[in-house]
């Protein structure tokens, strides 16, 4: 069985009375020939690595080797624990966990790419926030990773998931879209609602360019991961409220692809445009790498 579009995915889930996560698990079992239990254990291992990255990052206030990131996860976690966060527990926890993961990534620590390392903060951010705030058990979070990967597979095969190929809309955009759909499914929404959340989240990030300062996955990547978690929760809430995306998800993904193709090379992870070429961005680059430019 091949699923090449969100439309096919919703149909298949309805026909087989399965969630998106269950559908992914079934497909993986068929394709890989591995036992279902082994596949679940492999996914569990990834969830554990994500948790370890969050736990390490939330306590580590050291700077990345570049000196341009690090320490913000601890700040956000403290602020959140003082009960001051305007955005509420779900979003503020996700923000702290997302910072923890992405800062860890910048330190060349071990993380899990979801779907990429540059966007690795978003899914763990929302998943462990759900766990903390409504007690979603780990076993459900593992199923959530199957939901996320099914949504990600459709996006990756119809468009792209890396900043170099399609800009940040492809990277943080895809991860945010996957996270939005995953929240919906973990909160008991239908596959159709999950796909609506995916579309709504992706639409909010269309056109976002990849312009990392000095080519590092730090500025603005880390904070874009954080904002991604907020968008994921907003999109999920809209979908769970019964709000639909006026543009079907497959068409949104198609738009993301075309925008990425139209995006100049300078804005696709080459660090030759956008924030990378601001005065400060150029100074950072010069300070870090005395090389041809």
């Amino acid at each position: 069985m091949e699923i090449q579009s969100m439309r096919e995915l919703i149909k298949a889930c309805e026909k087989e009375q399965k969630t998106i996560g269950e559908m992914m698990l079934k497909m993986e079992t068929e394709k890989s020939g591995r036992d279902k239990e082994i596949i679940i254990a492999m996914m569990e291992e990834r969830l554990i690595k994500m948790k370890e990255a969050v736990d390490r990052g939330i306590k580590d206030d050291s700077a990345a080797p570049s000196g341009i990131s690090g320490g913000d996860a601890v700040k956000m976690y403290d602020y959140m624990n003082q009960g001051k966060a305007l955005s509420g527990n779900y979003i503020s926890n996700a923000m702290a966990f997302s910072l923890a993961t992405s800062e860890n990534n910048a330190r060349m620590g071990v993380i899990v790419a979801t779907p990429t390392a540059g966007a690795a903060g978003i899914l763990p951010g929302v998943l462990f926030s759900l766990h903390k705030n409504d007690g979603t058990p780990f076993k459900d979070l593992v199923m959530g990773l199957f939901t996320a990967s099914m949504l990600g597979l459709v996006i990756a095969n119809r468009s792209f998931i890396s900043g170099a190929a399609g800009g940040c809309q492809a990277e943080v955009g895809s991860a945010t879209a996957m996270a939005a759909g995953t929240i919906v499914e973990l909160r008991g929404g239908t596959p159709e609602q999950a796909v609506n959340a995916t579309a709504i989240a992706m639409k909010s990030l269309l056109g976002l360019v990849c312009d990392p300062v000095a080519g590092l996955v730090e500025v603005p990547c880390i904070k874009r991961n954080v904002i991604g978690t907020s968008i994921a929760f907003s999109a999920a809430d809209m979908a769970l409220a019964g709000i639909e995306s006026q543009i079907p998800c497959d068409e949104v993904i198609g738009a993301m692809y075309r925008i990425g193709k139209d995006m100049p090379r300078t804005l696709r992870e080459t660090a030759l445009g956008g924030l990378a070429t601001t005065e400060t961005g150029k100074q950072v680059k010069e300070r870090l790498f005395c090389r041809k430019s």
Partner: peptide, 24 residues
């Protein structure tokens, strides 16, 4: 279809900072 498996999307377990520029 370049991407086939759920582990192409969730994973690899890797050292940072970039899946395309480091892990791949």
């Amino acid at each position: 279809m370049e991407f086939q498996s759920c582990f192409d999307i969730i994973g690899p377990i890797m050292v940072g900072p970039s899946s395309s520029h480091t892990a791949g």
